[in-house]
Amino acid sequence: MDEKMERVVELFGAVAPLLWQGTGVTLQIAALSLLLGMAIGLPAGIARVYGPRWLQQATGTYVVLVQGTPLLIQLFLVYYGLPDLGLTLGRLEAAFLTLGLNSGAYQAEYLRGALQAVPVGQMTAARALGMSQGQAVRSIVLPQALRLVLPAWSNEVVAMLKYTAVVFLIAVPDLMGQAKILASRYFAPIPIYLIVAVFYIVLVGITYGVLRQLERRLRVPGLTGEPT
């Protein structure tokens, strides 16, 4: 028992530095993809509700296409498939682009739901004050929708952290990527993947805690994601 324990500790000492490196890559991919997703999802969500008809349909198609297909196929299509069309991306770029496009669709959907959950009277009152539609969306409806979307957005952050784990399949050296190398180097897949699982649990736990704190900070009385 003691000897076995010692071996695990020894193994952990050996693999920890590379797993740390992988964690850095995982966090970097998750953060950048979330930002790209937000840059896409924010305008796409607004366009889906307030855009002209053709734009509503275009963003709707984008959302269905992304939400209706597996992330892994999207990733392979971008990394292996796009070069056929003359667009060759590096591993990291392909990972960012795929995860960003993927997250963008989900973030757009969350925002659409939140925008539609803001009572019509808010828009009416803003227009009655003399605001244009654009002004009313910017200063009244959107700030409320962004607060309503916060819980869903927190879930998306945690989900993204987990989704990044597939990018090792295009040989990105993230946490899983390092784990795979180490597993074959030490012939010890089970302990190494278990250690990786613990890494993810800690990462997700910390992220979850930070986001809850953020949600509490931004809370406005009478305006929450929960139905009242």
């Binding site: 009277g121 808010q122 009416t124 009152a125 009655a128 003399g130 200063s139 409320q144």
Partner: peptide, 30 residues
């Protein structure tokens, strides 16, 4: 509409703004 004030049956106060913010937002934005 800037010249016509309107008061609604169900108030329609802006939920995310304080009482002061509700009065201010039209002044600053419009």
């Amino acid at each position: 509409r800037q010249r016509i004030g309107m008061v609604f049956q169900d108030f329609n106060l802006f939920t995310h703004l304080t009482a002061l913010g509700n009065v201010m937002v039209g002044l600053t934005k419009v």
